Amino acid sequence: MSLGTFRGVPRNDLGHLNTSGRPDPDAVFHRANLPRTGLDDVPAAATGVMCSVALYLHEGDLISSLTFISGATAGGSLTNQFAALYSPTGALLAQSADKISEAWAADTAKTFALATPQRITKSGVYWAALSIAATTVPTLAGSLGAKPVLTGEGNLAQTSGTGLTATAPATIATPAFKRHVPLVLAS
């Protein structure tokens, strides 16, 4: 087996990544866009703007919900909150119900059940989206991502839409690069 110039044991060198996933892979199914280590407090998006993050899903996965985790800033005067799952081409597959003014405290996971669970028929990069309309949009647990520079690279996170309330757009139209990449768990 050729590992280039690497001379170590890959399992040993990558062992720290075991802390990023679920402790027992057979306990709870989920897919995540980021490891649980190295996360910080990142802004979501402006009020009424959708933030979508790249999420690799495997053929056969059944996605019923999307979970985002707030950071140090709680949501204030929330009026609309929804999550949505989009196809690799940016077409809406399913969205959650609008959680309207439901509170979102700091450092709290919030799960958005999709109205229709989605069975993934082809492995690839999908888009998990979150839109919040509020006086104070909560910050989220996440990381920083670099802007795509090579041909074929895509955004890790992006924003789209304005003035969104209770309904996800049919497509992700005119996405703009977003440096802050929120953590999302799909289950």
Score class of each variant (00 low, 15 high):
T121Y: 07
S131A: 14
Q158L: 11
K99H: 14
P117L: 09
S123Q: 04
A113S: 15
W104Q: 08
A173G: 10
T171H: 03
T108H: 09
A129S: 15
I132R: 03
L164G: 05
P117A: 11
A170G: 14
T167S: 11
I132F: 09
A166S: 15
P169S: 07
P138L: 03
L114A: 08
V137Y: 05
L140S: 01
T121V: 12
G124Y: 03
G161D: 07
V137C: 09
V125G: 07
K147N: 08
Q118G: 02
N155T: 01
W127H: 12
A157K: 00
V149M: 08
I132S: 04
A168L: 01
A146V: 15
A103R: 12
A128V: 02
P138T: 04
I120C: 01
A109K: 12
G163A: 12
V137P: 03
L150E: 11
P117V: 10
K110A: 05
K110I: 11
E153G: 01
P169L: 08
A109W: 11
G163S: 11
N155Q: 10
D107T: 06
S123H: 05
A113E: 15
A173N: 10
R119H: 14
P138M: 05
G142M: 07
V149I: 11
T111N: 13
L114N: 04
N155H: 10
A106G: 12
A113T: 15
T159K: 04
Q158Y: 01
T139A: 13
T108K: 13
L156T: 01
A173V: 10
P148E: 06
T151Q: 12
P138H: 04
Q158H: 02
A113H: 10
A170N: 13
Y126K: 09
A109H: 11
T139P: 10
W127I: 01
A134P: 09
S131P: 08
A129T: 07
T159Q: 05
P148D: 08
T136A: 14
G163M: 10
T135Q: 12
F112A: 01
W104S: 09
G124T: 03
L150Q: 11
A134N: 09
D98F: 09
A157M: 02
E153C: 01
T165H: 07
P148W: 03
G145F: 00
A109G: 14
L130V: 01
A141F: 05
W104H: 12
A166Q: 12
L114W: 05
A133T: 14
A129L: 04
G142Q: 04
P138K: 02
S143E: 11
A133P: 03
K110Y: 08
D98C: 09
L130I: 05
G152A: 07
K110T: 10
E102S: 15
A146Q: 15
A168P: 00
A168R: 00
T135H: 05
K110W: 02
T139F: 10
A113G: 09
L140H: 00
P138G: 07
G152V: 06
Q158C: 09
I132L: 13
A146P: 10
G161Q: 02
L144C: 08
